[in-house]
C-alpha cells in the first residue's frame, strides 16, 4: 500500500508582519533576542478553476502570519484556525547563521510531545518555529520557518487511495458536518455517523465519544490546508501521532476526513473534502519516547535554507519616491 504523503506547510508572511516586527524591534525588543510567542493561522485548502484551460489549480498549503501575530488577544480570521509559534529574532546575521537550529527545533517538538502526553492537549499540535534576522536599514528580513511533524515508524499507509468525501458521506451528512463546523471551526475533530445526523466532537474525547460506535461509523477529521487531492495537509501528521500514542489499541486503522469545505459548495462545484482509510504499521516496540520530527521549510530554490523578504521596494522612502509619477 502506498505511504501517506503529507503536503508540507508553506509559510506566508504578510508584509504587515515585518512592519510590526520593525516597530517591536525598535520600541520594545531593542537588543533582546528572547523567544517570543507568536500566532499564525491557516484555513482550508483552496482550488481555483482556470477559466482558460478548465483545470483546477490547487493553491498552496499556507500558514500565514500577519500584523496581529504578536498580539496577546489573537483571533484567527473567519474560516481559519489559529496556530501558535515560537519566534526568535537575532540581532546580527552572524548570530542568525550560527543559531543552533537543531536544538531550537527539538525544543519545540519536545513541547508538542510533552503537551500531548501530559495534558492530551491537541491545540499545540500545530506549533511552529520561526527564526529571523531583520536588517532594518535595508528593509530586508531573513527568516526560516519550521513546522515540526512527527515521523511515524513504520509510516502510515493509505488503503484504496484518497477519494472525494461525498462518495462515503451523503449530502445531508456533509451539510450537517459543515453546519456544525461553521458554528465553531476546529483544527481537529471527530465525527460519528451511527445516529440520524452525524455528530461532531473535539478530538480530546476520542475514547468516550467513540465508545460503542462501530469503526465504520467513526471519522477522524481535520481542517485541511492542502488542496492537492492525493496529499492531506501537514496537520494530519501530528494528529495521527497524537491518536496513535494516546489510544494505541483502537487506532491501527483510522477513517480520515480531510475537511476542505469551509464554504458550502455552490452550483457547479462539488464538495472538496477528501476521505481515506489510513493504516498504521506494526511498531517494533512500544515506547513513550518522542518520535523524531521533521519540518524545516525549504527555500525558494528547494533547498533547506532561509528565505529572504526584501521589502525595500515597498518600504524604502527613496525607492518609493522614484515610483511616484
Amino acid at each position: 500500500m502506498p505511504i501517506v504523503q503529507f503536503a508540507p506547510f508553506s509559510s506566508l508572511v504578510q508584509p504587515s508582519f515585518w512592519h510590526e516586527l520593525t516597530k517591536l524591534k525598535i520600541d520594545v525588543l531593542k537588543l533582546s533576542d528572547e523567544s517570543l510567542s507568536i500566532h499564525g493561522h491557516y484555513s482550508a485548502g483552496k482550488t481555483i478553476k482556470d477559466r482558460e484551460t478548465g483545470n483546477d489549480i490547487a493553491l498552496g498549503c499556507n500558514l500565514s502570519v500577519g500584523e496581529d501575530a504578536f498580539s496577546k488577544e489573537f483571533h484567527a480570521p473567519p474560516n481559519a484556525v489559529p496556530a501558535t509559534g515560537v519566534f526568535k529574532n537575532y540581532n546580527t546575521i552572524e548570530e542568525f547563521k550560527a543559531a543552533d537550529k537543531t536544538a531550537l527545533f527539538n525544543k519545540v517538538a519536545d513541547e508538542i510531545w510533552a503537551a500531548v502526553m501530559t495534558n492530551k492537549d491537541p491545540s499545540i499540535l500545530n506549533r511552529f518555529l520561526l527564526i529571523a534576522y531583520a536588517d532594518l536599514k535595508k528593509y530586508k528580513y531573513y527568516y526560516w520557518f519550521a513546522f515540526p511533524g512527527f515521523v511515524a515508524k513504520p509510516a502510515w499507509e493509505i488503503t484504496d487511495g484518497w477519494r472525494a468525501a461525498d462518495t462515503v458521506l451523503s449530502y445531508e451528512a456533509m451539510k450537517a458536518i459543515h453546519d456544525d463546523l461553521a458554528k465553531s471551526l476546529k483544527p481537529y475533530f471527530l465525527v460519528r455517523t451511527n445516529g440520524k445526523v452525524p455528530e461532531v466532537a473535539s478530538v480530546e474525547r476520542y475514547e468516550d465519544f467513540f465508545a460503542g460506535v462501530p469503526p465504520s461509523s467513526q471519522l477522524v477529521g481535520f481542517l485541511d490546508p492542502s488542496a492537492i487531492p492525493e496529499n492531506p495537509g501537514w496537520p494530519l501528521r501530528n494528529l495521527l501521532a497524537y491518536l496513535r500514542s494516546l489510544s494505541p489499541a483502537t487506532t491501527a486503522s483510522l477513517r480520515v476526513l480531510c475537511w476542505r469545505d469551509t464554504e458550502p459548495p455552490h452550483a457547479g462545484s462539488g464538495w472538496r473534502s477528501r476521505f481515506g482509510v489510513v493504516e498504521a504499521g506494526v511498531p517494533q516496540e512500544a515506547t513513550d519516547a518522542r518520535p523524531s520530527a521533521v519540518g524545516w521549510e525549504k527555500n525558494v530554490q528547494g533547498k533547506l535554507g532561509p528565505r529572504v523578504a526584501d521589502l525595500a521596494p515597498m518600504m524604502d522612502p527613496t525607492r518609493l519616491a522614484d515610483q511616484a509619477v
Binding site: I3, V4, Q5, F6, A7, P8, T47, N55, D56, I57, A58, K97, K101, T102, G149, V151, A152, A155, W156, A227, I228, P229, E230, N231, R237, V294, G295, W296, N299, G302, K303, L304, G305, P306
Partner: peptide, 27 residues
Amino acid sequence: MEEDDLEAGDEATAAPNTAQATGTGVI
C-alpha cells in the same frame, strides 16, 4: 547557510511534484 543535513529525507513528506501524476485534474 543551506543545511541539507538538518534533516534526513522523509518518505512521508509530499514532494512538490507528486500531484501532477495523478489523474484527478487538479494541478
